[in-house]
Design a protein around this nucleic acid. Structure first.
Length: 578
RNA sequence: GCCCCUGUAGCUCAGUCGGAUAGAGCAACGGACUUCUAAUCCGCAGGUCGCAGGUUCGAUUCCUGCCGGGGGCGCCA
């Protein structure tokens, strides 16, 4: 068990149980006055009818000799037990944690098959910052869940079906297929979509053609399908370029667009019908899920089949549930989707449960997130007019800005290295600024802050890693050669750093338990802060003692490994020099 | 009208399964560079944790109400 907090909690639990007479949480928490504190005695005092300090005293007596883990235990204040880990324990734990590739992170005791539904851009429509959040958060969640041993299935539920495709296909025909394909392949999806929309709004003749085209599409007309495939394939190629630039895991294998569920739409209706859940209401076929009401306080339906006979997104989402549970055997389904869809997803889950499609133990979770705002606290728009910011342009700008900074800070670096490093820094900065705040809140997009290299930013963390690499380069020592060294804990900065490294396990698991990547970010920032403090106070190569040098190199290596792994779990690269 | 999310330092954000003096970064101020890369560090200053009640030995954290901000509330996805 790598995290000393867990070790000490396990050690104290029997003592607490003995005093309490039943199982009892020691409530081990971080402390300002020691490495940790156990608060369990305060809660126990009342039921036992003795003072908290007395409880604490009895617990310590029951715990017996703990000197192998703790160098001191002290009862303080109203009944806190302050705990100080022994230096040799920290050193030994660090050695054990870094002996394997997991760096002390526990594997899942109950691995699951998890479907993560994220990114989900629309065909023939530009990706914007909303997709950025879903993509980046989803990617981090996927990586973290895989790291602890889950089977993770990525699903990119692209918008590739529905009524807009009538107008899009007609516009494609008007432009000529070659021209349209070219416009889409260079990434001018916004222009294409807007022009189609403009014609749809402005011309009754075009509108009629578009509607007819939708009927042909849904009817499986071969020529129409061929045009549709052109739209989809040009768009997905463009998405893939953005994904490559963003350095996320999504590939064509992960595409599961709305159209992929067409064959399940009729079965959804039939199964709901058979179960007597489907009712007719205002011309539509709907399911009334318990507990949902509309503006007039009347039951709110989930519309399965519209008045015109068509299906909508609720139908597709229910088909997804069936597919994911029955074909993919998913036990957990995560939807990385913006906050406005909260109620919709709740209703889908409620109906899926009522229909019995979600077995006991299978869960659906909405990984909700807030909006990206500009510095004016309004939804992010480009400088000129009300256009939403194109994701591709935004990423290019990030890399350009990073390149300028690298050129300034490290002029000796070759231009090839510089562009590589600039990509890692620029993209890392964008992703990290998105991941590092609580996802449920809106966050303010600010170039200067995310690339400032100070504070809780990707470049600051990357810099800490690069500095460690630099130490080993300078020393001419292989990183792996110091992994047989049990470090010696002497200076307070060494102690802080070692203890921090050991908390990686808890940081990863807190991230998973809350599905909140910012927990991992906060941890890595603390790790970087502890490292730079160590770096300033504890010379590694310039120390006179060979043992100290070895020990500190081992500590540096452990830190760099955790930093690199932690950033990798966020989908961020760690350059070896900056 | 009902429901969901949110309100912490001048700014941007952490934190809270109820615990001791609420923490960072930026900005401001004062220090430390012929560097193991100063893209850094050290120090100083800055807060009625939206407001009012309640539960508790103890509330920024839990509960209720109110106020401010955002979002949702039947045939777009």
């Amino acid at each position: 068990m790598a995290d000393p907090f867990i070790s000490v909690a396990e050690r104290l639990a029997p003592a607490f149980a003995a005093v309490a007479g039943s199982a009892c949480d020691p409530v081990v928490r971080p402390s300002d006055r020691a490495d940790a504190q156990a608060n369990g005695a305060l809660a126990l005092a009342k039921s036992l009818g003795i003072s908290p300090r007395e409880v604490a005293q009895k617990v310590l007596e029951a715990a017996g000799d703990v000197s192998d883990i703790l160098s001191s235990t002290e009862i303080a204040g109203p009944g806190f037990i302050n705990l100080v880990f022994s230096d040799s324990f920290i050193a030994q734990q660090l050695f054990e944690a870094t002996s394997g590739n997991r760096l002390g992170v526990r594997a899942s005791a109950r691995p699951e098959t998890v479907v993560v539904d994220y990114s989900a851009p629309n065909v023939a429509k530009e990706m914007h910052v909303g997709h950025l959040r879903s993509t980046v958060i989803g990617d981090a969640i996927v990586r973290v869940l895989e790291f602890v041993g889950n089977t993770v299935l990525r699903e990119n539920h692209i918008g590739d079906w529905g009524t807009p495709f009538g107008m899009l296909i007609e516009h494609l025909i008007d432009m000529g297929e070659q021209n349209a394909a070219h416009e889409l392949s260079v990434g001018d999806l916004d222009g294409f979509y807007k022009e189609a929309r403009r014609k749809f709004e402005g011309s009754d003749e075009f509108k009629d053609r578009a509607r007819h085209r939708v009927v042909l599409l849904q009817g499986g007309d071969e020529d129409t399908l061929r045009l549709w495939r052109t739209l989809v394939s040009e768009s997905t190629q463009y998405f893939n370029r953005v994904y490559t630039q963003l350095d996320v895991l999504l590939t064509d294998d992960d595409l599961m667009g709305e159209s992929a569920y067409n064959h399940l739409l009729v079965p959804v209706v039939e199964r709901l019908q058979k179960q007597g859940l489907l009712v007719e209401s205002d011309g539509a076929e709907v399911v009334f899920a318990d507990g949902f009401t509309n503006r007039e306080n009347e039951p709110l339906p989930l519309i399965i089949r519209k008045g015109d006979g068509g299906y909508n997104y609720a139908t597709t989402d229910l088909a997804c549930v069936i597919d994911r549970v029955e074909r993919l055997k998913a036990t957990s389904m995560l939807y990385v989707v913006g906050a406005p869809q909260a109620q919709h997803l709740q209703m889908v889950e409620a109906v899926a449960r009522q229909a019995g499609w979600l077995p006991e133990g299978s869960t659906m979770n909405h990984i909700s997130f807030g909006s990206v705002l500009g510095s004016d606290r309004k939804m992010l728009k480009s400088r000129s007019g009300g256009e939403t910011v194109k994701l591709a342009a935004l990423l290019d700008e990030a890399v350009e800005r990073a390149e300028v900074a690298v050129a300034e800070k490290n002029p000796e670096m070759s231009s090839a290295d510089r562009s590589d490093v600039a990509r890692m820094i620029g993209i890392g900065a964008v992703k990290y600024s998105d991941l590092s705040t609580d996802r449920v809140k809106d966050y303010i997009f600010d170039w200067d802050r995310m690339l400032s290299f100070e504070g809780n930013t990707a470049p600051y963390l990357q810099y800490a890693h690069a500095r460690i690499c630099s130490i080993f380069r300078r020393a001419g020592v292989e990183r792996s050669s110091v992994r047989s060294v049990v470090p010696h804990i002497g200076e307070p900065q060494e102690r802080e750093l070692a203890l921090r490294v050991l908390r990686f396990d808890s940081a990863v698991w807190e991230t998973i338990d809350t599905l909140s990547p910012h927990k991992l970010c906060t941890y890595l920032f603390d790790l970087a802060t502890d490292f730079t403090s160590f770096y300033e106070h504890c010379p590694v190569l310039k120390t006179g003692h060979e043992d100290t040098r070895e020990s500190r190199l081992a500590l540096c290596d452990a830190t760099a490994r955790v930093m690199e792994q932690g950033l990798a779990l966020l989908g961020i690269r760690s350059p070896e020099q900056m």
